[in-house]
Simulated scan of single mutants.
Amino acid sequence: MRRLAVFLASSHGNDPAHTELAAAVGTELARRGIGLVYGGGHSGLMGVIADSVLAAGGEVTGVMPRSMVEREWAHEGVTELILCDTMHERKAIMAERADAFVALPGGLGTLEEIFEVWSWRQLGFHAKPVGFLDAGGFWTPLLAALRSLVDSGFLPAATLDDLAVAPDLPTLLDALHTRLHGVPEPAHGENWRQVSR
C-alpha cells in the first residue's frame, strides 16, 4: 500500500485521546512509508495527522476546494496540495490517489466520506478496501447500528463483514492489505506484524 486516505475531524473533539491517536497514526504511516491522502486542512485532527506524518519524514497529499483555501483552512506545509472546485471533485481525487480508506474519529464529514467510498466499493466502482480504526471503541456504537441494518434486511451481511475494523493501526493495516491483495502483508522486520485471519 503506497497511499492511505484518512477521513477525520477538523476539530479536536472532547477527548485528548483522539488527538494522541491522530498523531500516532501519522507517525506510524510515515514510518511504514505509506503516504497520507486527506482533506488538506490545518486544524483539529486533520492538522495533527498531517503534521505528524511530515515531522516523521513522510509524504502528505491534501485535497481542498478553492473556496475553503480562500477561508484559510488549508495546511500550507503539505507535500502536495491539490486544489479543486467542488466537494465532489475533492472526494473523487482523494479516491483516485489512495489505495485504501480509513475513518478515524470525526463527525458528519467523516461519516459522509467513509460511507460514500464504502458504497462505491459495494457497487463495484472500485476495489479499494475500507476500514474503521475503532481505537477505544469509538466506532463501536456505529458498527452496532450497522449490524441492526443487516438484521433488518437493508444491508447484506457480506458488505458489513467486508469492512476492515480493528482497535489499532497495525492490525487494521494488515486487514486492509489482505482485502487489497488477498493475502496478509509479509513480515518486514519490526515494521509489520503478521495477523492470522
Rank of each mutant, 00 (worst) to 15 (best):
T27C: 08
T27W: 06
T27V: 13
L29D: 05
L29N: 05
L29K: 02
A30C: 03
A30K: 01
R32E: 07
R32Q: 08
G33N: 13
G33Y: 15
I34T: 13
G35N: 15
L36D: 07
V37C: 10
V37D: 12
V37M: 10
Y38N: 02
Y38C: 00
Y38D: 02
G39L: 05
G40R: 04
G40A: 02
L45D: 02
L45R: 03
M46A: 03
M46P: 01
M46D: 01
M46I: 00
G47N: 01
A50Y: 02
A50Q: 04
A50G: 07
S52L: 04
S52Y: 05
V53A: 05
A56I: 09
A56K: 04
A56V: 09
G57C: 05
T61C: 15
V63Q: 05
P65G: 03
M68C: 09
E70G: 00
E70I: 10
R71T: 13
E72Q: 12
E72Y: 10
W73F: 13
E76P: 03
V78E: 13
V78P: 08
T79K: 06
L81N: 06
L81F: 07
L81P: 01
L81Q: 05
L81G: 06
L83E: 12
L83V: 09
C84S: 03
C84R: 04
M87E: 05
R90I: 11
R90C: 10
K91A: 03
K91V: 02
A92K: 07
A92D: 08
A92Q: 09
A92W: 03
A92L: 09
E96P: 01
R97C: 14
A98C: 08
D99G: 11
D99M: 08
D99W: 10
D99S: 11
V102G: 01
A103T: 10
L104F: 05
P105M: 07
G107Q: 01
G107P: 06
L111H: 09
E112L: 06
E112G: 03
I114Q: 06
I114T: 09
F115E: 10
E116C: 05
V117S: 11
S119F: 14
W120D: 07
W120E: 05
R121G: 07
R121C: 00
G124Q: 04
G124C: 02
H126G: 11
H126Y: 14
H126C: 12
A127W: 12
A127K: 14
A127Y: 12
K128Q: 14
K128N: 14
P129S: 07
V130C: 09
G131K: 06
F132H: 01
F132Q: 00
F132Y: 10
F132K: 02
D134H: 03
D134G: 00
D134V: 00
A135Y: 13
A135G: 00
A135K: 00
A135E: 13
A135C: 06
F138I: 00
F138T: 00
W139L: 00
T140F: 07
P141W: 12
A144S: 12
A144G: 10
A145C: 11
R147Q: 15
L149A: 13
V150H: 06
D151L: 13
D151W: 11
L155Y: 03
L155H: 05
P156C: 12
P156K: 14
P156S: 13
A158H: 15
A158M: 15
A158P: 15
T159G: 14
T159R: 14
L160M: 08
D161H: 15
